[in-house]
Design a protein around this nucleic acid. Structure first.
Length: 685
DNA sequence: CTAGGGTTAG
């Protein structure tokens, strides 16, 4: 056989098997044998380097080629796309337009995929236009790519139009459209199409099932999902190797909170991939079954350590951060220092976040300073954390330092620092940063940024200014920004404005309890009990529900959760005893009066009867006291999913004085550090 | 050289 053909075959096998070392040797051979200018071999080299992740080498080959054809251009585009640089892929496509080579169906398909990956429909539409003009629109591969592009850009209507216009369809066409519909709101359409394709005589394959299952899990339709599961089994699919279908089934059952079923499918997979592992582990963790989650994680660590990647580590750390389980978090932190993916910046960032959320900003700061490489998220994590710890000044300092470190703040970073300012009541600083945002040519302030400013002004009592900001902003105000203003009205007793804003809010969303509760609190506050009571009744009639308040505390490495009025804990009696005793001591020593006023304020209380029951955060504290050896300055950490209630706030302040103990309470909004009768939030919780 | 799933951290 011709030497040239042998080299070509060699290179193609390297591309297929991702064997870079062999590829490099073959490249050497190509040069030695005098094929440096060979068009076909160079094309194969570009492809090989692209597949092996050596995008720089791919470009070098392309650059040195004396002549290029459409395959050379397309191979380079693919190389960029496969290495995660869709933008570059498209710019090569543009450069190609100025060359002698004309795009073919491969080129169009690749450029459409890049547009979809970027999610920029304008690019995709232009390319669609070019396809139509050059007659490639009717080539089925290109048509499929166009449908996919529109779907990926969130243009379901355009995708549907294209799909319906395609005279000839194949299985991939159907699969692409079904996958496109597999977004929450379109899950039903996905399932309808799934049925329709079978009526048209198409036979679903594993791609089809994967999408259809995903549609079920998006809809929370566990019934339909299990039916499909049965159907899949009758079609003879097995889970010997990790199939996409098995992964989708695990995911379906996890999302529908059927952990038992999820595990059953998972255990049948002989070669489990990392996504199924992480899906199941996170499933257990998010259900609060941390023991099971940790057992699975241990198994993963022992049996398939090499499979651990940054995704699993950072998401698992994220769960521990949310539950504030610093012990488990530390375990993974320790592990991450021993494996390669522990060096991922996302893992480092999640560790920073974990220590901050667990109430240890010093540890985060230490790690942050040691990080060899930081990205905008690293900075934002720190700024957000400082903000929640009431360290607004630190947050602002870091925000400014970030720029001198050549990292440009993005929209989220601005939001973090503005929110830190509003929590620490740094009005001047907040206004300066906001005006910087307005002058930043890269970014436009979003409603959320305005909401921060409304909060900042509102908390300072500048209600009219806050209102004018909303009225004059160039964006459509959403319900949240009005709620922010309403809260400010409550703090400062702006009853007239509250009535005005309240009407706007109820018009926008009359189905949300929070609005009624907030409004009725304001009226009750101002002594307008009748109006308050009327709104409260409305809530009852509508039967509106909201998230149940839940607090927890870690005692002896075990986490105990409490709901309001929860008496399921084995030590309930002792908890009540100690709480009563504390109340007595506080009454005697510092004239504490239970905050009746706050019983009404409490955002999660819906009736007086309920407010008499014991709040979850008090129960958690009670348990800590029952268990704890209370040395002076000992820190007790309590966590709550919603905001801490006013009476509890008062109660904990008193406790910190009487017992000389420090309480660190993390609620939905921020951290409260109670020390010697005072709270770090200055009562503006 | 091309089309379909699963995508972490603020």
């Amino acid at each position: 056989m011709h030497q040239r053909q042998i080299l070509a075959n060699l290179l193609r096998s390297c591309s297929k098997n991702l064997t870079l070392d062999k590829g490099l040797k073959s490249h050497g051979a190509v040069l030695r044998m005098g094929f440096a200018c060979d068009l076909m071999l160079n094309n194969d080299l570009i492809n090989m380097y692209g597949k092996c992740g050596k995008i720089g080498s791919a470009y070098d080959v392309f650059e040195k080629m004396p002549e290029r054809n459409v395959v050379s251009w397309t191979a380079l585009m693919c190389a960029y796309l496969q290495n995660g640089n869709a933008q570059k892929c498209l710019s090569v496509f543009c450069q190609m337009g100025a060359s002698d080579s004309k795009p073919n169906e491969f080129t169009f398909s690749t450029s459409l995929k890049a547009s979809g990956a970027l999610g920029i429909v304008e690019y995709g539409m232009q390319i669609h236009g070019l396809c139509a003009k050059s007659g490639f629109e009717t080539v089925i591969v290109v048509g499929n790519s166009i449908v996919d592009m529109y779907a990926k850009c969130g243009r379901i209507a355009e995708a549907t139009l294209m799909f319906e216009a395609m005279a000839v369809k194949n299985l991939i066409t159907w699969n692409t459209m079904i996958a496109g519909y597999t977004v929450e709101e379109n899950g039903k359409r996905a399932l309808l199409l799934f049925r329709e394709m079978q009526e048209q005589g198409e036979v679903p394959d594993e791609f089809t099932f994967t999408s259809a299952l995903k549609a079920c899990s998006g809809l929370g339709a566990v019934q339909q999902g299990s039916q499909m599961h049965a159907f899949i089994i009758t079609r003879g699919f097995t889970y010997d190797a990790q199939t996409m279908v098995a992964g989708a089934l695990v995911d379906l059952y996890v999302k529908c909170r059927r952990l038992f079923e999820a595990r059953r499918v998972f255990e049948q997979i002989k070669q489990k991939n990392i996504i199924s592992w992480s899906s199941l582990i996170l499933g257990f963790a998010q259900e609060g079954d941390l023991e099971e989650a940790m057992n699975l994680f241990k198994r993963l660590r022992v049996n398939a350590r090499h499979k651990l990647d940054g995704f699993v580590l950072s998401s698992l750390i994220g769960v521990f951060a949310d539950f504030a389980l610093v012990g488990q978090g530390k375990q993974i932190h320790a592990l991450s220092t021993k494996i390669p993916s522990g060096l991922d910046i996302s893992v480092a960032n999640s560790i920073l976040d974990m220590y901050l959320k667990c109430g240890d900003p010093d540890e985060s700061e230490r790690l942050f300073n040691e990080m060899p490489a930081k990205n905008v998220i690293s900075w934002t994590v720190m700024i957000t954390g400082y903000g929640k710890h009431g360290l607004g000044g630190e947050a602002v300092r870091l925000f400014n330092k970030m720029r001198s470190d050549n990292i440009e703040p993005d929209s989220v970073a601005y939001l973090a620092v503005l929110s830190a300012c509003s929590h620490s009541r740094l009005i001047k600083e907040g206004q300066e940063i906001f005006s910087r945002l307005c002058n930043d040519r890269r970014l436009k302030p979003k409603v959320e940024h305005y909401a921060c400013m409304v909060d900042l002004l509102g908390r300072a009592g500048r209600l009219e200014e806050a209102k004018n900001l909303i009225m004059n902003m160039p964006l459509k105000p959403n319900i949240e920004i009005w709620q922010t203003l309403l809260s400010a009205c409550r703090i400062h007793g702006g009853i007239e404005l509250a009535r005005e804003v309240g009407e706007i809010i109820l018009r926008l969303d009359g189905d949300n309890t929070v609005n009624y509760v907030l409004l009725s609190n304001i009226f009750a506050d101002a002594g307008n009990w009748k109006e308050g009571e009327r709104l409260r009744k409305l809530v009852k009639i509508k039967g509106l529900k909201k998230e149940a308040g839940r607090s927890w505390v870690e005692v002896d490495k075990e986490v105990h959760f409490f709901y309001n009025g929860d008496d399921s804990h084995p030590l309930t009696e002792k908890i009540h005893e100690v709480l009563k005793e504390m109340e007595k001591r506080m009454k005697a020593e510092m004239g504490y009066v239970p905050g009746l006023r706050f019983a009404l304020h409490d955002v999660e209380d819906e009736s007086k009867a309920e407010s008499l029951r014991v709040h979850s955060e008090k129960l958690a504290i009670g348990l800590a006291l029952v268990h704890g050896r209370l040395e002076e300055k000992k820190i007790i950490r309590i966590f709550k999913n919603l905001r801490v209630c006013g009476d509890c706030h008062l109660f904990i302040k008193g406790l910190s004085k009487v017992l000389k103990v420090v309480f660190l309470v993390r609620d939905a909004n921020r951290f409260h550090k109670f020390e010697d009768g005072l709270c770090s939030c200055g009562d503006f919780w």
